Amino acid sequence: MEDRFKSEAHVPVRYRPYADPHDWQKLTEDSTNQLQTTMGQTMTTPCDAEIGQTEEELTNCIHDLFLNNEYIEWRKALRSFSAGEWHLLTASLENRNTPTTAFLEFGEGIHSKLVFSHIEAPDHIESQMLMLQFTVSGSMWHCVVWHCPEAN
């Protein structure tokens, strides 16, 4: 093995077994915006702006679930989903006859892994609030929303 591979400092963050998964900046600096040459062709990886834009658009779509009237039936039915378990978002929207187009536009790689879970807030008796967590399985993206279904 060459000397340059003996030190962990020379291994990109995404290949380090105990790299801090929350350090997205290091990950993107090491793996994004680099040119890769494959069989004589030069390809680029997604840049930070594209990744950030997708995450921002996904977060905006999640917020729309709680702002737009077209999702009101889904919001009213939140307590019908098992608390503390993960549910596929697009399937839950389809079951309530609410639009899924905004999420399907992210492509199968995202919408097929976009899940949510909910638990009652610590002060649930007084507030009736639920904490909903959304994530894309296998990614670091997540979104947390506090919502009171009774106050639709």
Rank of each mutant, 00 (worst) to 15 (best):
E2K: 00
E2S: 01
D3V: 00
F5V: 00
F5H: 02
K6V: 00
S7D: 11
H10N: 15
V11D: 11
V11R: 04
V11H: 14
V13T: 15
R14C: 12
R16H: 15
P17H: 11
Y18M: 12
Y18G: 08
A19K: 03
P21F: 09
W24I: 06
Q25V: 15
Q25P: 08
K26T: 11
T28I: 13
S31G: 14
Q34W: 03
Q34S: 04
Q36K: 10
T37Q: 12
T37G: 09
T38C: 04
T38N: 07
T38E: 10
Q41M: 02
T42N: 08
T44G: 10
T44S: 13
T45E: 09
T45V: 01
T45N: 06
C47E: 09
C47S: 10
C47Y: 04
Q53H: 06
T54P: 03
E56A: 09
E57N: 01
L58P: 03
T59C: 13
T59V: 10
N60Q: 12
N60T: 13
C61D: 05
I62N: 12
H63E: 04
H63R: 04
D64C: 08
D64W: 03
L65C: 00
F66R: 02
L67V: 09
L67K: 07
L67D: 13
N68C: 08
N69W: 09
E70W: 09
W74G: 02
K76H: 11
A77T: 04
R79V: 00
R79D: 03
R79P: 05
R79H: 10
F81G: 02
S82R: 07
A83V: 01
A83Q: 05
G84R: 07
G84F: 06
E85K: 06
W86Q: 09
H87S: 08
H87I: 03
L88S: 05
L89T: 00
T90M: 07
A91D: 02
L93Y: 09
E94S: 02
E94D: 02
R96L: 14
R96N: 07
N97M: 11
N97C: 06
T98I: 08
T100R: 05
A102F: 04
A102L: 06
F106W: 15
F106Y: 15
F106T: 13
G109M: 07
I110F: 05
H111D: 12
H111S: 14
S112L: 09
V115H: 06
V115E: 11
V115T: 14
F116T: 00
F116H: 00
S117D: 01
S117L: 07
H118G: 04
I119E: 12
I119W: 07
E120L: 14
D123S: 12
I125Y: 11
E126S: 13
S127Y: 02
Q128E: 09
Q128Y: 03
Q128T: 02
Q128M: 08
M129T: 11
M129K: 10
L130F: 08
T135L: 15
G138C: 01
S139M: 07
M140Q: 13
M140F: 14
V145E: 11
H147C: 02
P149Q: 11
P149L: 08
E150K: 11
A151F: 15
A151H: 15
N152M: 07
N152Y: 12
